[in-house]
């Protein structure tokens, strides 16, 4: 069970969404027994939670990147109004 949860943590948003859609489809078809149904529901619930947190994962930021001339990159905040 713990392993399963770990695996879900590494699912990409897209993969998680796909799995979620699969679960919804299976549950809506209704051809599973109650135990499986509950297991699916719990997994689905976790996936929704995971997807939602992914949506909020990234912080709003606008930056400017430039080649630092040494094969790397320099990143600095960008103030569009100042440009």
């Amino acid at each position: 069970m713990a392993k399963n949860t770990e695996e879900q943590q590494t699912l990409s948003f897209e993969a998680a969404l796909k799995r979620l859609e699969e679960i919804v489809e299976r549950m809506e078809a209704g051809e599973v027994d109650l135990d499986t149904m509950i297991a699916l529901f719990e997994e689905g619930q976790r996936l929704v939670k995971q997807c939602n947190s992914t949506l909020n994962d990234v912080e709003k930021r606008i930056e400017k990147i430039m080649d630092d001339g040494k094969g790397g990159v320099s990143v600095e905040p960008l103030d569009l109004d100042a440009e």
Partner: peptide, 27 residues
């Protein structure tokens, strides 16, 4: 839009609940 994603996820969550409820009700 983020809103569309949130709506989609909420919709999935609703579908999950309804499917489970339907199953339990049927049983």
């Amino acid at each position: 839009t983020k809103q569309e994603w949130e709506q989609l996820l909420a919709q999935h969550m609703r579908a999950l609940r309804q499917a489970l409820l339907r199953q339990v009700t049927a049983l």
